[in-house]
Structure formats: C-alpha cells, structure tokens
Simulated assay, not measured.
Amino acid sequence: MVFQRGGHVYILANKYNSVLYIGVTSELISRVWQHKNKSNPGSFTSKYNCNKLVYYAGFNHIEEAIAEEKRLKGSNREYKRRLISEFNSEWKDLYQGLIDE
C-alpha cells in the first residue's frame, strides 16, 4: 500500500502586491509561517518581502499540487492576478484565517 499525501499550491505577495511567489507544500500553515519569519534569509521571499498569503488551493495528492504549481508558474502575470482577485478580491492576508480554523 502506498500512502498518498495531499498538498497545497499557494501564492504570496509583498506589501504592494507587486511581487508574487508561487510555492507548493504539504504543510501550508507551517510553510507560510516560515516565509513570514524569514526562516531562510537568502530566499526569494525574504529578499522581496513576500509574506502575505493571497491565494491557496488544496489537492488530495502532492503530485497534483506540484503540477498546478508548474502550470501557474507558466501562466502570465495577468492570469495570476485574476486568479487571486477571484479567490481573494481584496488581496488580504489569508494566513490568520487558516490558523483560526
């Protein structure tokens, strides 16, 4: 029997929503916490202050999340902005809502 683990694809933005970062993880809350606390100071998200969770989507299998991450990374900026706006029209930081659930 093979254990399948789910995952999330997520998008972080900086304060001005001018820089976007797309990532994938099996542990969304802890991964976003790492970004917010700059656990990896040399990373893209640390350098560009991308610590606002503006979009996420869950998948039953991590492979599906990875495929979606690749698809999103290959899409143009306008598509990403529309996706975020449809999911989170005010571009609010969704992190606290995840913790409160």
Rank of each mutant, 00 (worst) to 15 (best):
S46F: 01
N49Y: 04
E101T: 07
Q34I: 09
K80P: 08
Y48E: 10
E78K: 14
E78R: 04
I84Y: 04
F59I: 09
R5H: 10
R82C: 10
K73A: 10
Y16W: 07
V32I: 08
E86R: 06
V54G: 01
T25F: 03
I62S: 05
F44L: 15
Y79W: 12
E90D: 07
F44R: 15
N17A: 08
M1Q: 05
G23A: 00
Q4V: 00
K47Q: 12
N88S: 02
Y16L: 09
G97I: 06
N17F: 11
V9N: 03
I84A: 02
R5K: 09
H35N: 11
G6T: 06
M1N: 12
E63V: 12
F44C: 04
T25A: 07
S46I: 08
S43A: 11
I22H: 01
Y79N: 02
E90C: 14
M1Y: 14
S75A: 03
G42K: 12
H35V: 10
R77P: 03
M1W: 00
K15Q: 12
Q34W: 07
F3D: 10
L72I: 15
G7D: 11
G42S: 13
H61P: 01
T25P: 06
E78S: 07
K47N: 05
Y16I: 04
N76C: 00
Y79V: 15
D100L: 07
I22V: 01
H35K: 09
A65H: 10
I99D: 05
S30Y: 04
L94K: 08
E68T: 13
E69W: 04
D100P: 13
I62G: 00
Y10A: 00
L98D: 08
E27P: 07
A13C: 02
N49D: 09
N37V: 11
P41F: 01
Y10M: 03
Y21M: 06
G58E: 15
Y16D: 11
G6K: 04
W33D: 14
V2L: 13
S89I: 11
L94Y: 09
N40A: 09
G6A: 09
I84P: 00
L83Y: 06
N76Q: 06
C50A: 13
R31N: 10
D100R: 05
E63C: 08
S30D: 03
L12D: 00
N76V: 05
L94A: 05
K47I: 02
S39F: 15
K80H: 10
F3M: 13
V54W: 14
R81W: 00
G6Y: 11
V32C: 12
K52F: 14
K38V: 00
R71L: 13
W91F: 11
A13K: 06
A67T: 03
K70R: 00
H61N: 02
W91T: 15
